[in-house]
Nucleic acid binder design. Sequence first.
DNA 1: CGGGCACTTGAATCATCTCAAGGTTTGTGG
DNA 2: CCACAAACCTTGAGATGATTCAAGTGCCCG
Lengths: 251, 251
Amino acid sequence: MQKTKLIDFPAIKTACSKCSLQQLCLPQGLNNADMERLERLVKRPRPLHRGEYLFCQGDRLKSLYAVRSGSFKSYCLGEDGSEKILGFHLPGELLGLAGLGDGEHHATASALDTASVCAVPFDRLQELADHLPSLNHQLHRIMGQRIARDQEALMLLGDKSAQERLATFLLNISSRFAERGFSAREFNLSMSRQDIANYLGLTLETVSRTFSQLQKDGVLEVDRRLIRIVDRGRLTDAAGASFTDTSSATR
Amino acid sequence: MQKTKLIDFPAIKTACSKCSLQQLCLPQGLNNADMERLERLVKRPRPLHRGEYLFCQGDRLKSLYAVRSGSFKSYCLGEDGSEKILGFHLPGELLGLAGLGDGEHHATASALDTASVCAVPFDRLQELADHLPSLNHQLHRIMGQRIARDQEALMLLGDKSAQERLATFLLNISSRFAERGFSAREFNLSMSRQDIANYLGLTLETVSRTFSQLQKDGVLEVDRRLIRIVDRGRLTDAAGASFTDTSSATR
DNA sequence: CGGGCACTTGAATCATCTCAAGGTTTGTGG
DNA sequence: CCACAAACCTTGAGATGATTCAAGTGCCCG
């Protein structure tokens, strides 16, 4: 009895069917039988520490990854060593989709804090999707979402001011935290000012100044990486007209 | 005999198997039998004139579209009426992929000149893909490419100067024309200075000045919307380090 | 031929960047 | 547990590239 318990416990602990991220992740919309078949493909490598790489630009695409805990940034490097951050990835989000085009990763993904992932071997996922329309449709859906999200990011960089960019960014992070059951009002940013600046197309100093300004105006309370949204209405105003706040959570 | 000829002619003219864009478009990599099954789904609506809409933001996603001729821009509108251009679409490229996330178009697509498309009803495409793994993989590949392309656009807006942005944009357009069998050295832009400016996150005046500067420096010859690349090497330099020129075509 | 639209060019302004210095937290080794 | 170094963040002042506002040109279409 102890033996089965010892064997089963990790399996149950990590099963997709028990995962709190199910609704945000690949298995969303799958029935139990299909989820079990997907489950059998999933590997769960050891957790990564801050700064470790999940994959690197130029690597052959072997697996897709879903974030289980912690967070990642993905970025491209220019040959001059500069990096451009393409996005941040929270639990439940998939990484590596851009590699589907030609089977090669176009970006590097590194952990922002201690983080764990589920890895799904891409060829076997594709095989399984060939036989499970529901999984296949879910894959399409996720890729479509991802394209839509990248397009939002494009709009952000378009012609917005520093304040609009930072406000939009914070609202975006806030609603992603809320989706995962965390507070939309108060959260810890896992990325540095430099990372935020790079992502938003600004300098570190401008981001810092903008945080200070929003704090002075009573919109935020900022304590290093801990952010509290004091006046969500004014933050939304600061984000500019084109932002439509989907979640009005105030938890 | 005349009769069959009259009936068959348009069918042959428009068949995927005869289309010069096959290698850039959805049927790429499909065998003849599969291509024929895809072909049966494809509708070819009347051509659109400059300014006409292929679909609008908020429309239910009914079809995916592939550009046959002409070109499109896709853009989002803020509630204040402003528009942000997300991309330009040349023949062989697919439109509407971002809608896969939630079945609704997130952008508006309008014709930049007289343009024609192939329309593939999305539900029937999905059904067919469920039975044809090769089509399904091709769909994944195209979506992956699209994500990768959007990410390149993101890098462009990151922290580059006006000259770097415009140079990168022109090299990008140039290689896309080359892929389609047109000259990489000399081409007509189908979009206005305003559209380019909007896409690049600049003002119309800055784009105009930058064109003038590149012409004065002997890098380009610019005659209204006709562009000739005189010194590709220096244009690549102007685009900045992080751009890697995939096509070295000089046709 | 004339009116309108797209584009060019100039001059002044402004937001952000750059450079520079100082402060605070974190982690490490003594 | 303390001291020190490194990393991270904040703030200020001056420089700069892009924007704004404004005027003028030339091409295209009716």
